[in-house]
């Protein structure tokens, strides 16, 4: 490849790269949220064995590098199971699981923040555990958890930058390509950094709006 200067087409490349990050971020956040909440349910109902497994798994995921998790899924799983795993699949699996681990921890501490007596008191009146969860725990826990969840999302958006290492053509990968082609690392990485920065700020802003609305809403309902 010849070294050459920037072209206007590079802007499209950058936008596509960022699009990949954002798309993956949205998909894995949604999956991670659902799985994490599922795990929290397992814990809430104190399902034997499964509850312990879930706790252990989330600790393992929280306390190991995402990069290693990516390698395990992308290189390790195919070797073990003799299946094909594309970079995008590996990235989706890994980031979803990683997000789930953090969602689980946030959900559990949110549920625990709601006094156990409230739950016990409700149970005395013959309300089922599901009704307790739906009408008593969830609204309060959601209000408690939304702040940490937004912080988590901002962080997970940044984590998507690692998928380039297993070959997904995301913004970081585009940065690499432009870096090699133009040999202008300062410009390239500054632009890439600012794009990620802007995306992170956007997520934070939307999260904050959502949080405020939720707060106003639950205050109005007089929790």
């Amino acid at each position: 490849m010849r070294f050459s200067d920037f072209t206007s087409y590079d802007l499209i490349l950058l936008a596509q790269g960022l699009g990949t990050n954002i798309a993956l971020f949205l998909v894995t956040s949604l999956i991670g949220l659902l799985i994490g909440l599922g795990w929290a349910l397992v814990r809430f109902y104190r399902v034997p064995v499964l509850a312990q497994i879930v706790t252990f798994l989330s600790e393992l995921l929280k306390n190991s590098p995402v990069l290693v998790q990516l390698f395990l899924v992308f290189f390790g799983l195919p070797a073990l199971l003799h299946i094909r795993v594309t970079p995008v699949t590996a990235a989706t699996i890994t980031l979803s699981a990683n997000t789930a681990a953090f969602v689980y921890v946030i959900a559990v501490s949110a549920i625990e923040s709601i006094e156990r007596e409230q739950v016990e008191a409700a149970r005395v009146f013959g309300i089922t555990r599901w009704q307790v969860l739906r009408h008593i725990v969830t609204p309060q826990a959601a209000a408690f958890a939304v702040g940490p969840l937004v912080a988590l999302l901002v962080n997970q958006l940044q984590v998507t930058s690692l998928i380039s290492v297993i070959g997904v053509v995301d913004l970081t990968k585009i940065g690499h390509i432009l870096n090699m082609r133009t040999l202008k690392p300062f410009v390239v990485w500054t632009v890439v950094g600012l794009l990620y920065y802007g995306a992170a700020k956007l997520v934070a802003l939307l999260g904050e709006r959502f949080e405020n609305r939720l707060r106003a809403h639950s205050a109005w309902r007089g929790l």
Binding site: S161, G175, H176, P185, W189, G193, K201
Partner: peptide
């Protein structure tokens, strides 16, 4: 800035940028 830009991008910035 350093909290909202992914670490890998910061790292490449230094790794490729400083020699320049």
């Amino acid at each position: 800035l350093f909290r909202n830009v992914p670490f890998i991008v910061q790292l490449f910035f230094f790794y490729y940028g400083l020699p320049e």
